[in-house]
């Protein structure tokens, strides 16, 4: 019974920093000048612009996640098959940029795109000047920023995999590719799931990268929320809170779906 005592600080923490802010969000979304109403909420979510920006963000997050997975899986796989000491050194190379400030890295990329590349190759237009170039630039930097978050869980899962399972598969007549598809890939699903979650959620809420790389005139959903809160009037708080609630629901749904994938053994492999 005494042990309950140790939980109190956490309960206080959770009330102060999780429950109260959530209540504020709901308060601003549904309360206008002291009266409870759904009017603001409905007008915000019926705005066409909201949905087009949200859609753009979802597509961007999907693309970022997919590219990270395609790049990260082979890297993690190769690392997991290396000697522990070598793999450790190489993975540090991957993670060192991650320990650097996020905004600093993004600024660096902005400088590369805007000044370094045009100077080096003597071109007039930067990538962001081209039609659709901003989307590509933002995608590129997002992939760069989030790739380590994909590699880490994949590497953990793959390096913990029992190597005798691979031998068993070879022994039973499977060649390298078949072994990968039938044994390695299905067994790395937990790593894939946490990698996707770790990349998808921050990239759908990202606002620093589009802000800095897009030079202020490229916005994703995160930027829209930021702008709403920065507008300075109370109705902006209401719009921002509403947008946040929509995003929250979206993230909850995607997380639930991903977790289903992980635990659903009856469905077997993803093949």
């Amino acid at each position: 019974m005494k042990r309950k005592f140790f939980a109190y600080p956490y309960i206080v923490w959770m009330i102060l920093f999780i429950a109260v802010p959530m209540l504020f969000i709901f308060y601003y979304a549904f309360n206008v000048d002291g009266t409870w109403t759904t009017e603001r909420f409905l007008s915000t979510i019926s705005d066409k612009d909201t949905w087009s920006v949200l859609w753009r963000s979802i597509v961007m997050a999907f693309e970022t996640t997919a590219i990270c997975l395609l790049l990260g899986y082979p890297i993690a796989y190769i690392l997991s098959n290396m000697k522990k000491s070598v793999a450790g050194f190489i993975s540090i190379l991957f993670f060192v940029p991650m320990w650097m400030n996020f905004v600093l890295r993004t600024y660096a990329w902005s400088a590369i795109i805007e000044y370094a590349i045009p100077d080096l190759f003597h071109v007039e237009n930067t990538l962001t000047d081209l039609p659709g170039g901003k989307t590509i630039a933002v995608l590129l930097v997002m992939v760069y920023d989030f790739l380590p978050f994909m590699i880490m869980p994949l590497y953990n899962t793959l390096s913990k995999m029992d190597k005798s399972l691979i031998e068993a598969s070879r022994d039973l007549g499977a060649d390298g590719l078949t072994t990968f598809l039938r044994v390695v890939l299905p067994l790395s699903v937990p790593g894939i799931v946490s990698g996707i979650t770790m990349v998808f959620v921050p990239s759908i809420t990202a606002f620093t990268v589009p802000e800095l790389i897009g030079n202020g005139d490229y916005s994703l959903y995160g930027n829209k929320i930021e702008q709403a809160f920065k507008s300075g009037n109370i109705s902006g708080y209401s719009v921002g809170s509403t947008l946040s609630i929509v995003l929250l629901i979206l993230v909850i749904i995607s997380t639930v779906i991903m977790n289903r994938f992980d635990k659903d053994k009856e469905g077997g492999s993803i093949l």
Partner: peptide
């Protein structure tokens, strides 16, 4: 000759059964 082309099968020390497959699919693997 690589192992998958040999008409030899192994029972491994710690069994090395596939945890993502049930008994039937483990046996049917080969």
């Amino acid at each position: 000759v690589p192992p998958h082309k040999r008409e030899i099968n192994t029972v491994f020390q710690k069994y090395a059964l596939f945890p993502h497959l049930n008994v039937f699919d483990n046996i049917a693997f080969g």
